[in-house]
Each structure stands twice: as structure tokens, then as C-alpha cells.
Design a protein around this nucleic acid. Structure first.
Length: 320
DNA sequence: CACTTGACCTGTCCGC
DNA sequence: TGCGGACAGGTCAAGT
């Protein structure tokens, strides 16, 4: 679920909290979610200070002064939850599904001022209830603040590795350019998209080796913006159409970062606010609703193995 | 080699 | 009410 705008929102938020924090202790389930050997954690994470929080594609990079980096991919349901260690300030945010009596919250931490990042699930809407059963790792800092890594579906992972080796990860070597970097021009976009001339344009947008950071939400939104059917074969698209797609893609990515990303179930940014992009979305999860341009009812189909939202009137399959 | 599909997971939702 | 199955999607491995 977290795509480029969500991970960037998380990066911005964590950048306000983490630099300078010194790691006091770490606990994890030692499974796939955080597979490092305990001795490496002892040597390179415990006692280290965080120097920077970076992002590449959908990957978060938390740099340490041990010259190691914590590399985190949230995949679909991963979250990073930062909990301040001081000034406990009880909050009562109720689940929308039920009114949980406080007495049932047996896992309340002593500190309750928390900031949650990333994709979530309904049980997460009770702020202050951590760790929960999706918690995979907890990093505690010397000032008693904590960073929780939660992931309901265990697709995400966090890995500690030497900073200098991060660019050598297979994913990092293969991943395409950042679409919001200044030197990512229309012609570079067209050339990279055209590398997969026989594929559907949606499959190519989702291909991280073509360009970095686009997932299902922003693929659908940008194709609607450019009036291109997601099944259109890349080779049949004109330069003009691809330029429109470039413009639409950059516009939706920028708008979403401005809105703090997309909140599906729940998700808040550094200021405790939900990402609001989905309320600006034109097609994603809006099947059955009228198209904002032509009022035709939006539909949901399957393209490139993904649920795909489009306007059947504005986005017709290109006929060569 | 280029491209597509399935596996990995768990929680939710829908139909019977 | 409960149960089975489809579905959600980022990425990699396996298949066509």
C-alpha cells in the first residue's frame, strides 16, 4: 500500500523525530520481518545514533553513525509508529467499528503520545495500544521514545546492513529513476516506458525497474489523468500521449505528497493527521461512481494482475 | 529474452 | 451464525 508519496510522507515525518536518537534496545520476532543476527544488532544497532532518514523508491533508509543502515520496506501493510518517551498525554481515539471499553486495553504502554506512519488496519485506530499482534520489531531509544515496526501481513522487512552496501542490494541496482527528481524529463520517461513496448502501459508503470515508486493507486490515477486505458500496449502510444502520462503522473505524485499520502484504512503523518489524497482520487476505489470529467460510471477491471479502476468512456483502448 | 502469473501472508467481506 | 473462498497488492521466483 505505501507507494512513493506515502513513504516520502513517512520519511519527512521520521526526519523530524529520529536524527540524533541513540538506540537503547531492540526486540523483534527474529523472523523474516527482521532477520538480522542478534550479534549484528548488538554490534551495529544498539548504542548507535541515527544520522539521517532517506528514501529510495518505496524503501526507507535509516542511517546510523555505526556506518550501518536500517533498510525498511513496508510492502502493503507495514507501519512505522513513533512513540514519544516523555509527557504522556492520554488520547482516546475510538475504533469506528465499536466502542472498546478502556478496561480491555491490557497492552497500553506507559507513554501514549504516538505518531503512526504507514498503512494500517482497523484495529490500529486505537491510538495508544501498542505493541499489538502485528508488531514485528521495537526499537527503544535512550530517551525512552520508541519506534514500532508493525506489519499485519509480514510482507515487509527491515534489515541492518553496512551503509556502503545499500546500493548493492539487487533491488537498488535494478530500480529505475525517481520520477520527482529534477533530471527526470519527459524524454527519459518515454524512453524508459518504451523499453517494454509489448506490455500493457499499466504493467510498465508498476515495473520498478522502469521507474521508481509507482504502485496501484498512482498508476490508475495517472492513466485516468492522461485518458489512457490501462490495457493499452505501450508500442501503440504516441509521444504526445506518453507526455500527457508523464505530466499526469508527476501531478498526482506531487498532489499526494502535499496531501500526506493516501489513507486507506488509517494512517497518520508526523502531525497526527491522516493522509487525505484518496478524497482527491478520481478513480481509485471509486467504481460505480460518476467520472469527474464525463459522468460515466467508473468501472473496476483486472489488468496486469491488479484491480484496476478506470472510466470506460474517457479511457478507451487505443486502436493501432 | 520478454513478459505474465503465482506465491508469500493475514484480515475482511461476501454469499450460501 | 459459521464457513469457504475471493480479494487486497509489492516484489520476487517460476512459468509460458
Amino acid at each position: 500500500m505505501p507507494e512513493l508519496p506515502e513513504v516520502e510522507t513517512i520519511r519527512i515525518g521520521l526526519s523530524g523525530f529520529l536524527p540524533g536518537k541513540q538506540v537503547q534496545s531492540v526486540c523483534s520476532d527474529n523472523a523474516r520481518s527482521f532477520p538480522n543476527a542478534p550479534k549484528d544488532v548488538d554490534e551495529f544497532l544498539i548504542g548507535a545514533k541515527i544520522t539521517d532518514v532517506r528514501r529510495r523508491a518505496k524503501v526507507l533508509l535509516i542511517d546510523l553513525d555505526s556506518v550501518y543502515t536500517l533498510v525498511i520496506h513496508l510492502k502493503m501493510t507495514g507501519q512505522l509508529v513513533f512513540v514519544q518517551g516523555t509527557a504522556p498525554k492520554p488520547q482516546t481515539v475510538k475504533s469506528k467499528t465499536q466502542n472498546d471499553p478502556p478496561s480491555t486495553n491490557r497492552h497500553l504502554l506507559t507513554t501514549k503520545t504516538e505518531v503512526r506512519f504507514g498503512a494500517g488496519h482497523p484495529s490500529d485506530s486505537l491510538i495508544g495500544k501498542l505493541p499489538d499482534k502485528s508488531t514485528r520489531a521495537i526499537i527503544e531509544f535512550k530517551d525512552a521514545s520508541k519506534l514500532f515496526f508493525n506489519d499485519q501481513r509480514k510482507f515487509g522487512w527491515a534489515r541492518l546492513m553496512p551503509t556502503i552496501e545499500v546500493p548493492n542490494i539487487d533491488f537498488m541496482k535494478k530500480v529505475g529513476p525517481e520520477p520527482l527528481e529534477a533530471d527526470f524529463t519527459q524524454s527519459i520517461f518515454r524512453n524508459r516506458i518504451r523499453r517494454r513496448a509489448k506490455s500493457s502501459v499499466k504493467a510498465v508503470l508498476l515495473d520498478q525497474t522502469v521507474l521508481a515508486g509507482v504502485g496501484n493507486i498512482y498508476a490508475d490515477e495517472s492513466l485516468w489523468g492522461a485518458k489512457i486505458h490501462p490495457s493499452t500496449i505501450v508500442g501503440t502510444l504516441s509521444d504526445q500521449k506518453l507526455n500527457k502520462l508523464y505530466d499526469a503522473l508527476l501531478a498526482v505524485l506531487r498532489l499526494s505528497i502535499e496531501k500526506g499520502g493516501s489513507t486507506d484504512k488509517n494512517y497518520v503523518n508526523a502531525e497526527g493527521k491522516k493522509g487525505s489524497y484518496l478524497s482527491f482520487a478520481n478513480v481509485f476505489r471509486r467504481e460505480g461512481q460518476p467520472c469527474a470529467r464525463c459522468s460515466t460510471l467508473l468501472i473496476k477491471v483486472r489488468v496486469a494482475g491488479r484491480g484496476t479502476h478506470l472510466c470506460p468512456n474517457c479511457q478507451k483502448v487505443a486502436t493501432p
